[in-house]
Design a protein around this nucleic acid. Structure first.
Length: 209
DNA sequence: CCAGAGATTTTCT
DNA sequence: GAAAATCTCTGGA
């Protein structure tokens, strides 16, 4: 493994750009090339992280073995998936935000809807989870044990951008960290959106992208 | 293209 | 009881 998943999520996140994650479910295989991620750190280090206030039943997987999947349910209807990083006992994870479907496109479209364009199949964290067929039942699963497989890029991606994270509000409103990583010139990268509570601020001052 | 609002449930204050 | 690591649809430019 060229990348040490036990490292901090800030280090692992850009290394996952270009990696291919596969899920071989009974319905078939879907693989996608990761084009956009976000890093989240542990207790007391990152106000935007689920682990910020310590271990809870929901986030306990984040404190577990690196290389496992942390799935969570949010906004009453969506599931999102992370790859757990950092040594056991310390919580940090990489949120998978978007990817390009490179295998099993028919199955992915079956799950997402017949009218969905190829580029939108896994464009956004909740969409990615649906396209890949991941559910809350996969919380704690190993990303490199069947039915999952993670193929890391032989050469680390270059030419990615670092921006503020999406949907995260920190002290004073803004996310203090630029921990969103996205490959440049990738149509599958999700459109950048600021946190809902910052929309009026954005209208006043303007925000990048 | 952009902005607004609704859906709906887990989690923690 | 409010907010949340979101998405989809609607209506307008």
């Amino acid at each position: 493994m060229p990348v040490d998943l036990a490292a901090s999520a800030v280090v692992v996140a850009p290394a996952l750009l270009g990696a291919v994650l596969s899920h071989d479910s009974p319905a078939g295989l879907v693989s996608l090339r990761i084009t956009e991620v976000e890093a989240y750190l542990g207790t007391g280090e990152d106000p935007g992280s689920h682990a910020h206030r310590g271990r809870t039943p929901r986030n306990s997987v984040m404190f577990g073995r690196p290389g496992t999947l942390y799935t969570y349910f949010t906004y009453g209807m969506h599931t999102c998936a992370n790859v757990v990083c950092s040594p056991e006992g310390s919580a940090s994870a990489v949120l998978l935000r978007a990817g390009e479907v490179v295998a099993g496109e028919d199955l992915a479209r079956n799950r997402r809807g017949e009218k969905v364009s190829a580029r939108d199949l896994a464009r956004g964290p909740a969409r990615l989870v649906v396209a890949l067929g991941i559910s809350m039942a996969d919380n704690g699963a190993d990303v490199d044990r069947p039915p999952f497989h993670l193929e890391l890029p032989s050469v680390p991606a270059s030419g990615y951008e670092e921006t503020l994270r999406t949907g995260v509000s920190g002290p004073g409103g803004a996310d203090p960290f630029r921990w969103r990583f996205a490959l440049r010139d990738e149509p599958t990268v999700s459109p950048y959106k600021v946190h809902p509570s910052l929309r009026s601020v954005r209208a006043d001052r303007g925000v990048q992208r």
